Computed example of a mutant assay.
Amino acid sequence: MKIDLTDTTASKINKALVQGRHAIGTPAVGMVLTMVIVTDEENAYDALKAAEEASREHPSRTLVVIKRVARTPRDRTQSRLDAEVRVGSDAGTGETVILRTYGEVSDHADSVVLPLLLPDAPVVVWWPVDAPDIPSKDPLGALAQRRITDMYAVEAPLAALEARVSSYAPGDTDLAWTRLTPWRSMLAAALDQARTPVISAAVESEAENPSAELLARWLGARLHVPVERVVTAGPVVTAVRLGTEKGEILIDRPEGPLATLSLPGQPARTLALKVRSTSELIAEELRRLDADEMYAIALRGEAAEENTSHV
């Protein structure tokens, strides 16, 4: 069910949500969090689709904030809020409200969003593009326990990474880091099997790849070894090489969903290591909403206080 509201208020939107739930016969609210997506019109469809797919695992109220760009003098002086309310099959497993803000309302989007948050439920804010310089100090970001950005969406990802180092606050994370979870798991398993100290490391990827840079910093912090960055033609991280006294540990994924794992003295094995969809990445981030200490360590390239003999 869809309800369109023009020149509306947060109070009227809440009433429309109640009306929609009653109309489809599901007045009870069983959602576990509020997902706020801050985006533009061009990227709104893909972001909302990813959030709806992730809501199958994490039923949520999704609020999509689209700040409309003023194109005429009248647009610049006009202050208005339009909304599209979706419930039932039109909203995945939760509820969706698409908010389009005009004029001064765009400068105070937090005052629109605040009354629409689920009571006593975590808040996650995701910027698919155009994230603020300091997410935790953004008015919408300040409402959230988890703030998700994506360095792949900017023109200079490594410059954005350095900015994230200085602006990091507990609760920040980035999908460039989330994309590394399968790599980190595979590397940890490989080191557990090899049981030998690492004396050198190298990460191979295309140039300006933020995930590769985070992986290199994480390995350096956890293993206390220098990590070489090697530029290849691959679209993502293509290989990680760990030098040991017994030989090289290699995870090689030049292309496709499969990787080859090579350990000293053992035959090579083929393992699944696919590039995951945005909805899978978002679903992973919603599984834990506490501070991601490993992301902070990877950003800064610092060793953790605990034992760091293994990754």
Rank of each mutant, 00 (worst) to 15 (best):
residue 173 T to N: 03
residue 143 L to F: 07
residue 196 T to S: 15
residue 207 A to V: 14
residue 148 I to Y: 05
residue 154 V to K: 01
residue 140 L to W: 03
residue 128 P to E: 05
residue 222 R to D: 05
residue 124 V to D: 06
residue 219 L to N: 12
residue 168 Y to T: 02
residue 125 V to N: 07
residue 111 S to R: 15
residue 134 I to T: 12
residue 192 D to Y: 09
residue 177 W to K: 03
residue 118 L to I: 08
residue 125 V to W: 05
residue 129 V to S: 05
residue 160 A to H: 03
residue 199 I to Y: 02
residue 211 S to V: 12
residue 119 P to T: 05
residue 195 R to W: 01
residue 139 P to Q: 07
residue 145 Q to C: 01
residue 120 D to M: 05
residue 130 D to G: 04
residue 224 H to P: 00
residue 223 L to H: 12
residue 194 A to L: 05
residue 200 S to G: 15
residue 190 A to G: 03
residue 174 D to Y: 07
residue 136 S to H: 14
residue 128 P to A: 09
residue 116 L to Y: 01
residue 165 V to E: 11
residue 169 A to W: 04
residue 126 W to D: 06
residue 173 T to Y: 01
residue 177 W to P: 00
residue 133 D to V: 13
residue 150 D to C: 08
residue 212 A to T: 11
residue 167 S to D: 08
residue 227 V to N: 08
residue 162 E to K: 11
residue 230 V to W: 13
residue 204 E to F: 14
residue 172 D to L: 02
residue 111 S to N: 10
residue 178 T to R: 15
residue 210 P to W: 13
residue 228 E to T: 15
residue 116 L to M: 09
residue 184 R to M: 11
residue 201 A to G: 14
residue 151 M to D: 10
residue 114 L to N: 04
residue 171 G to H: 08
residue 135 P to T: 06
residue 191 L to M: 14
residue 137 K to I: 03
residue 218 W to A: 14
residue 145 Q to V: 08
residue 230 V to G: 05
residue 140 L to Y: 02
residue 131 A to T: 01
residue 113 V to E: 03
residue 215 L to I: 12
residue 188 A to L: 12
residue 128 P to L: 04
residue 198 V to K: 09
residue 172 D to C: 06
residue 163 A to D: 10
residue 139 P to K: 09
residue 119 P to S: 08
residue 136 S to V: 13
residue 204 E to T: 14
residue 200 S to P: 00
residue 127 W to T: 03
residue 153 A to V: 07
residue 156 A to F: 04
residue 157 P to R: 05
residue 156 A to H: 13
residue 165 V to G: 00
residue 127 W to G: 01
residue 155 E to R: 12
residue 156 A to Q: 09
residue 152 Y to N: 15
residue 114 L to P: 00
residue 130 D to C: 02
residue 184 R to I: 14
residue 127 W to E: 04
residue 155 E to Q: 11
residue 139 P to S: 08
residue 117 L to F: 10
residue 161 L to Q: 03
residue 227 V to A: 11
residue 212 A to G: 14
residue 193 Q to Y: 01
residue 222 R to M: 12
residue 125 V to I: 13
residue 151 M to A: 12
residue 124 V to N: 06
residue 212 A to V: 10
residue 210 P to S: 12
residue 167 S to H: 12
residue 219 L to Y: 10
residue 132 P to L: 09
residue 156 A to G: 00
residue 110 D to I: 02
